[in-house]
Simulated assay, not measured.
Amino acid sequence: MLSPKALPFFLGPLAAATQLPLPRTIHQFPNPTWLENIASTRNGTLLTGVLGATAALHLIDPFASDSAPVDSLLYDFPSANSVFGISELSPNIFAVATGNYSTTSGATEGTSSLWTVGLNSLEKEDGTPAVRKVVDLKDTSLVNGIAALNKDTVLVADSLAGTILGVSVKTGEYHVLHDDISLAPNLTASPAIGVNGLKYLAPNLYFTSTRLGAFRVRVDPDTGAAVGPYVKLASLEVPDDLAVTDDGTVFVARPLGDVVEKVGVDGDVTVIAGGAGEEVVRGATAVTLGRTWRDRGVVYVCTMGGFAEDGSFVEGGKIVAVSMD
């Protein structure tokens, strides 16, 4: 849990970035540590979660001074060993998906849950977040990426089932909203998952298909149901999570390619980090965009450390800041 001495992480003024060179490693965890997702908060700190070891949600300060802590454990979710999707429901209130997952044997079906984590409560003396379980998603196979549609509804990717669910934050009720061929897994492939990352930027829901690439679909802003066709934006090899700018530019992490790619509104795909022997984003799993004047134009990347030939992890997962361009 967040210790009182870590309160300045969330509450204190962040130091100016002063055009620090990019790419830049913000923080690296011990080997092995698989970081699965990342989200920016409104004051510039970052939320990231661990997969396959402990369902730990960490708070990272990308602007910490040399004498200040960069990383603090915010919360460790019970009855799970992995944190998957993270998405902001309303100011400083985040939806978080958890479950049980093994990097060798895959997901334990029926173990996924959806939670809310409130950061405003960090102002209290004990410095603990306000955490509430919304629902156990017992009828799901592998809850992965999530996207807040509004303050009351979260869209949830079930990657093995190849569907997207709508979950009511108020009641915990959920049902399938999207069941399209673009979401389906290829069960003979490795990894054998379909729909992966989700991001909602009205009026479109953007998503990655692990076997096909990046897509978008226009959705109803109240229900999240499709009101238009599923449009393929680009073919990508084993994409993971994604981030989207206001103009529809998409940034995608590709863990097996050790790269972050940008998909322009014209469908043109370019590498913005990694590739050509570079190891800066080895095992990139997710991306998020800087939200303050200090980090305008920055894409934050979390990684799982990359695989060696024997299947071990090359390094511990890390948080890296790279340029959008």
Rank of each mutant, 00 (worst) to 15 (best):
I164G: 00
I26P: 00
L74P: 01
D258R: 05
G85K: 09
V169I: 15
P129I: 00
R132W: 05
S65W: 02
A64M: 04
D179Y: 15
E309N: 10
T33L: 05
I164H: 04
T163S: 12
F10V: 03
P62D: 05
V143N: 01
Y300L: 03
N31Q: 12
P8E: 05
D220I: 03
I181S: 15
R254W: 02
L183S: 06
D139N: 13
V176A: 12
A225V: 12
G277N: 06
G127R: 00
S209T: 01
L114A: 04
V83D: 06
A308Q: 14
M1K: 11
G106T: 10
T108G: 03
A16C: 13
R294S: 11
G166L: 00
T104L: 14
M324A: 02
Y174V: 00
A107L: 01
L242A: 05
D258F: 06
S121K: 06
L201W: 00
A226V: 08
A214C: 12
V252W: 04
L187T: 14
A53Q: 15
T210E: 07
D325H: 11
S87C: 06
K138Q: 11
I93T: 15
I193K: 12
I319L: 15
P203Q: 08
V244W: 02
G172K: 10
G52Y: 02
I26N: 00
L177M: 10
L177D: 07
A107K: 04
L119T: 01
S3R: 08
I93W: 02
D220N: 15
E237M: 12
L20G: 12
T285D: 05
A184E: 13
G277E: 02
Y174K: 01
I93N: 14
D240F: 07
S190V: 12
A308W: 03
L149T: 02
D240V: 05
W34A: 03
N92D: 15
G277S: 07
F94H: 07
A15Y: 13
L114V: 06
S209V: 04
D247P: 08
L74W: 01
I181L: 13
P239C: 09
L165C: 01
S190E: 14
I26S: 03
V271R: 13
R132P: 00
V298C: 03
Q28S: 14
D71W: 01
R24E: 07
G257I: 00
T153A: 01
A321I: 04
H175R: 11
P255K: 03
L187Y: 07
E173V: 08
G85M: 00
V227F: 09
Y300G: 00
V265N: 07
S190R: 12
A17T: 10
V265Y: 09
K318D: 10
V96S: 06
S209Y: 08
S159F: 10
S121D: 08
T249L: 04
